[in-house]
Amino acid sequence: MSQLLSAHSISFHYPGSADLHLPDIELGVAEQALLLGSSGSGKTTYLHLIAGLLRPHSGKLMIDGTDIYSLGERQLDAFRGQNIGIVFQVPHFLRALSVTENIAMAQRLVGKNPDLYRIDELLTELGLAAKRDQKIHHLSQGEKQRVSIIRALINKPRLILADEPTSALDDKNCTSVINMLKEQATAQGSALLVVTHDHRLSKEFDQKIQLAS
């Protein structure tokens, strides 16, 4: 069967530093995996490589049958907007816009009309219904992370990448956020790859990939 994500012999180096050889990854449709590594092991770099925010020195990456490094820059941006949802360690937003507008912007940027009904549904599901028209800076850290999860999900991407999504959260929020991610990914059939050094998450995933430090 075809893999959703397959990364092969990807290497990368920053100017003036040694090559970073990254482990191969194979992830099936709707599968979930954890990419573990201590800080400084190149976790974020790897995530950016998978998301196409960065191009590798060598190697090949297929997402849903597309060799993403063969795409031109504009196509890669568009491909990412359509097919990859990303949740960052510290959630950032367009501060001029409200919660709903921020989520809607993710849809607009890939040329879709915002599905306000679904946005409302997800906001309600994640306990944010009352915040829908507020500016982002009125939200708590945990709330912001939940909004960023909705934003990552809204285009029903084939792949969701999460970069340390829980490191800024306490245990209670950590569990609830990771469960939310897993549930929502499962609900819409997206594959999920979480990059973390947070060992609280180890027990939540069966498939783990270890980055050498």
Partner: peptide
């Protein structure tokens, strides 16, 4: 950061 975010969400440099 906002500008990068727009790129992440599919906006091109243009």
């Amino acid at each position: 950061y906002e500008l990068s975010l727009l790129r992440v969400m599919g906006a091109g440099r243009g």
